[in-house]
Simulated assay, not measured.
Amino acid sequence: MNDFAEYMELIVEPTFEDFRRNGGSVRHAYLACLAIYHAVDRAAYPHEPSMLAEQWRTASMAFMLVEEVAQHFKHGQRRWVKKAKARNPDALLITHPLGLEGSLKGLETHPLYFQARDAVLFLREKVKLAAQAPSPQ
């Protein structure tokens, strides 16, 4: 499944809806963030998604926060967090207000829901733009 619109329809939308129905579930929150973040892979296909991900992070704070949750759950702690703490040990990292420090049970799912919702709205706009773009010959 390489089609961005199809990925949104079959994976992102229903996974986000599962999170909406199970708002206190850390598992549903993580799966929604993971599905939302990986939409960039489908949108960039067949190209490497890193440049597009950087553009989306810049354009949408919600997408950036959702990515942070997806990556944090996957890796435990992002490499850049260690570098940031080394530069400024007193810095408040986004992982703190999201509740990603310590046990994963501390994840603040209520505010994360709204970030995930906004990231889905952002992706819906990207799907519309992709549908309007002329297809390559």
Rank of each mutant, 00 (worst) to 15 (best):
L93S: 13
S135C: 13
L52Y: 08
N88S: 12
E68C: 07
A130N: 04
L52G: 07
V69G: 06
P97L: 00
R57F: 12
P134R: 07
E54W: 08
S25Q: 07
W80K: 10
D41S: 10
A133G: 01
Q132M: 15
G99S: 01
F16T: 09
L129H: 06
Q71I: 14
E108S: 01
P97D: 00
L100R: 02
S103G: 05
H28E: 05
L34P: 06
K126Q: 14
H28F: 12
H47N: 08
F63C: 06
V40N: 04
R21M: 15
Q77Y: 08
T109N: 00
A86Y: 05
A35W: 06
A133R: 12
M64P: 02
R87V: 12
K128W: 10
H28A: 05
Q77S: 10
L65E: 14
L107G: 01
V120F: 03
E68L: 15
R21Q: 11
Q137T: 14
A62F: 10
F19A: 14
F16S: 02
T95S: 12
P111L: 01
V66Q: 11
A5G: 11
E67P: 04
E6A: 14
R117W: 10
A119Q: 07
L52I: 06
D41H: 10
K83W: 13
Q77D: 14
H110T: 02
A53W: 06
C33Q: 01
S103R: 08
H75V: 02
A29I: 14
S60I: 03
F63P: 09
R124D: 07
R124G: 10
Y45Q: 05
L100E: 00
R79I: 03
G99V: 01
A32F: 09
R27P: 05
G24V: 04
H28P: 08
A35K: 04
K74L: 15
P89I: 01
E68Y: 15
A43H: 12
A39D: 02
A86C: 08
N2C: 02
P97H: 00
H38A: 02
R78W: 11
L34G: 11
A5D: 15
P111R: 03
Q115N: 13
E6W: 15
R124P: 06
L129F: 08
F63S: 05
K105Y: 14
R20H: 04
R79E: 10
L52M: 13
M64N: 13
K128Q: 09
A44Q: 03
A131S: 03
Q132H: 11
V81R: 09
F73A: 03
E125P: 04
R78V: 01
A119F: 13
A39K: 01
P46T: 04
V120R: 04
D90A: 08
P111V: 00
D18Q: 08
F63W: 14
K105I: 07
S50M: 13
L31T: 12
S50W: 15
E54C: 06
K105D: 15
F4K: 00
E125G: 14
P46G: 04
G24Q: 03
A43M: 10
A91D: 13
A35M: 11
